[in-house]
């Protein structure tokens, strides 16, 4: 009886889903933006993420035809901006899609050195709000759904912001080391002090040679345990960052994994940010002992 009820519920749900035909198509160039779009659009927006790792060596990576076709059909495309996904700009010019750029929504100048905007707490609310008003204008029939989803999304970010504020209250000024400026926005919002020279971060990010002094300074931070946490880009590694990771582990420096795209361990953007913040909290607590 119970199972029949369950089956009925599933069937009813399936029927409802089948009725909710997507009316709009949206694309997030990076998976985190796609996830936010899906949360706002609900069943009425078909969302695709471009599955390319944007930091893959562009020497050898090519966009395939399916990406071009996805762009052709899209109504809305969300890009990060700041050159992070510059490959898409030209591709989007011939299409009818409306392009939302996180950089432009935040009014950042083009020479902002750190493009990893999704680690800022104000980025996704701005993206979500713009996406919602676009959906509402294009599909007024479901205006209430989009508005409710936006509200739900904004509320769901509150625990993350609270957790970040707690880290700040407890550990403000704690020294940390990084490889690239991936999570720098979040680490700065948590009041932590990034000890890695900025020129080293830029060399690693841009794949050029770092200077020996910067490498020595970075190694000294880990070797002398002068930092409490080492934020390590799990997604883009090279021999250089791997040797830093080995060094950090050997000297018992806490390692915080950070990502360029949503990791598989997180179902949604807010889970990912929450996981990172909790991991940061634990790493800081463990290093205090």
């Amino acid at each position: 009886m119970l199972s029949r009820l369950g089956l009925g519920a599933v069937l009813a749900l399936a029927g409802q889903m089948a009725m909710a035909q997507p009316v709009l198509r949206a694309v997030g160039l990076e998976s985190q933006y796609a996830d936010v779009l899906a949360q706002i659009g609900g069943p009425y927006v078909k969302v695709s993420a471009i599955q390319s790792n944007p930091n893959t060596d562009p020497h050898e990576f090519e966009v395939t035809p399916s990406v071009a076709q996805i762009f052709q059909r899209a109504d809305l495309v969300v890009e990060n901006g700041l050159g992070y996904d510059g490959w898409a700009a030209e591709m989007l010019e011939g299409t009818h899609a409306k392009v939302l750029s996180a950089q432009k929504l935040l009014n950042l100048p083009d020479d902002t050195p750190n493009p990893h905007l999704w680690y800022r707490t104000d980025t996704m609310p701005a993206v979500a709000a713009s996406a919602a008003s676009f959906f509402e204008a294009k599909d007024p029939a479901h205006k209430a759904v989009y508005a409710a989803n936006l509200k739900k999304f904004d509320t769901s970010l509150v625990p993350w912001k609270r957790a970040l504020a707690q880290v700040k209250a407890k550990y403000a000024g704690a020294p940390i080391a990084v490889t690239e400026p991936v999570a720098d926005y979040m680490l700065q919002e948590a009041g932590l002090k990034i000890m890695t020279p900025l020129s080293f971060e830029l060399s690693i990010m841009n794949d050029t040679d770092p200077s020996p002094q910067d490498v020595a300074a970075e190694e000294a931070l880990l070797r002398g345990r002068r930092v409490r946490v080492f934020a390590y880009n799990e997604q883009v590694t090279d021999p250089q960052t791997q040797s830093l990771l080995t060094l950090a582990k050997r000297h018992d420096v806490q390692v915080l994994p950070v990502y360029e795209l949503m990791p598989a361990s997180a179902a949604h953007y807010q889970d990912w940010m929450m996981q990172t913040t909790e991991a940061l909290n634990q790493a800081l607590a463990a290093s205090a002992k």
Binding site: D57, P239, S243, Y259, P263
Partner: peptide
């Protein structure tokens, strides 16, 4: 290489990619 990387990106999703080292990493090799 383009094909191999294409498979890396599509099958591993966001699990990480190796980069060819165009410029040196001579200052910190294990």
């Amino acid at each position: 290489t383009a094909l191999l990387l294409h498979f890396c990106v599509t099958t591993h999703g966001a699990a990480g990619t190796a980069q060819a080292v165009m410029f040196g990493a001579m200052f910190s090799t294990p």
